[in-house]
Structure formats: structure tokens, C-alpha cells
Design a protein around this nucleic acid. Sequence first.
DNA 1: AAGATTTGACCAGT
DNA 2: ACTGGTCAAATCTT
Length: 316
Amino acid sequence: MDRLMNNEDVRAKRGKVIMELLKGKQIATRLQTLLHEPAAQDDDDGLGLAQQLALQILTSFTETLSELGSCSAASSQIAAVDKSRKKAPASEVKERRGCYKRRKSLDSWVTVSSTMEDCYNWRKYGQKAIMSSTYPRCYFRCTHKYEGCKATKQVQKTKENPIMYQITYFNQHTCNKKLRHLHDTGDSDHEDLNLISFEANIQSKQDQYSPNPMSSISQVKEEFKEVNNAQSDQNLGSNEAKSTLHDPWQDIDTELEPLGYKSTWTPIVGSCQENVGSGFDRSYEATSLQGFEEVNQLGNIDYSWYFNQVCSEPYL
DNA sequence: AAGATTTGACCAGT
DNA sequence: ACTGGTCAAATCTT
């Protein structure tokens, strides 16, 4: 087994994570400035630069995720050593339905995000009303479960800010299959496990599944215009139809849901707090360009995501 | 037809 | 007994 990380290492990792996020924020600010320049929006060079900046932001987030991933695993290892573990008795495999080992102590971490989306393929396997919560909790497992990937996540709207999702992840992905969505090039050799690629996540208008990051700024702009037009035509319903995945919360608070399309361009990591969340709301009421610019105020992201290591079992 | 989602049932932990 | 996590049949979507 690799050597365990000491506290020093963990601190160093945290420092690196913060640096990466600050870098991302800086680039996002540049992008925002650029987008405020009318000339840049019509000019190919300007758009090219914007795309480049956007890619840098994504790379920054990717680096961060990568660091956090290793932190997570390392912390699990520490916890595994520190805690006296009680090994559950090996229960015989039952054939009956609903038989499972209840989650007790797994490698887990929590993020708060404005979107349920991330760079992996998930399959929903359950939904539950939770006593202490207004909103139901949805259960997802990795699409590649049967290839041995044990990653799961639970998604729940936050009480304080219902446009935000609290996402609890359990177990790291072992499938190493990042999101390719429906535009599967079949070129798995080119998958960079630590890179969230804009290009790989392009999604056509026909795609019925969950929205994805866009390929370019201009595409985002076009998309935004469409969304705005659709909305001025009227109703959330037609936009919600973009996803076949029924929003379990929409019946509860449809008025709080800006649009089914929001996750198209919302950041997939980090915690977008109240100001950003309400920014999204406002952007829908603005003109398409204003809305677009507000959306790009990534500089307002509050990086108050946090890790919550609850582990008494070693990370495998 | 294949794959994804929904939803009621089942089961473990507290 | 209650609550929450998972299973799997039914249903839906592509």
C-alpha cells in the first residue's frame, strides 16, 4: 500500500487546492471582463480567448478535484488506522430482494452545488422522502456498477437554498469512466481521467438527458438565447422536458426552480451560495446577454465546499 | 430492444 | 417501531 499521508501532506494538499481555486477565480474574472467588452463578443479572437479562458477554468477545477480526490482517499487511510474498526460479521449472501448492508461508515464527502451534474454517469436507483427534510433524497449509483465501480451519491435540495443541491458521494469511482454522455466517440483511449473536457461534453439540442457543460462560449450564448426565447414563449414545462429525469422537487417548489436548463452552465464543483443562486434567478429575467454575463460571474463562487470524512473502513 | 427511471417493498441500524 | 438505503418489477424513453 502507498505510504500514508501525514497531516503535513494534507495541509500541503489543501494549500494546493486553494491555490488552484484562486487561479480559477482569477481566470474567471478575466473572462468576465472580456465578456463585458462589446468588441470581444463579435470578434473571433475575443471568442477564442474566451474559450481558452473557460478551458483554463475547467482545468483549474479539474486539478482541484484531482487533489481533493487524493486527499479524500488519504484521509480515509488515516482514519482507517486511527479508528478501531469493528468488522461486521460476514453475512451470508441472501437471495431476497432488498437485502443489503446498510451504509454505516464509508468513504464519503459532501459538496453543495447548483447542479446535480458532475463528470460521471450516474443511474438513479431510488428516491426517498426524508423525515427531517422538505425535499426527497435521490439515490444514484455509478452506471458502471456491474463493472465493479462502487461509487454512489445522494442528492438532496438544501433547505436553506432550494436551488442548491447537497450531494453526498460515497466511495471513489473505480471505473475511471468520465462522462461522455450521449456523444460517445467510442474513443476511450483519449479519455483523460483527470480532465473535464469541454469538447467531450458537448450536447446536441436533441439530447434528452441531463444538460451538460457547453463546448464554447458562443454555444453558451446561443443556448442562452434559445432558453430565453423559450421562456418568453412561456412555461417551465417545455424546458423541463429537456430532461427525461423527472425533477422530484419540481412539484414542491416549481417557482424556485429557475429553469431546467440551469445546469447547462453552472459550475459543477464548489458551493455557489445565495448570491450566485439568486444571480441565476435574476439572469432569467434579464436579456439573454445580460443573463449570460451574470452567469459568468464565476468570481462570486464561494469555495465553501467541504469534505466530510466519515470513515472507519479503509478505502479500497 | 436496450437502457434508464419510478416506485413500492424489503431489510438493517438505531 | 421508525427511518433510511437498496432492490427490482413495471414503466418509460430512445
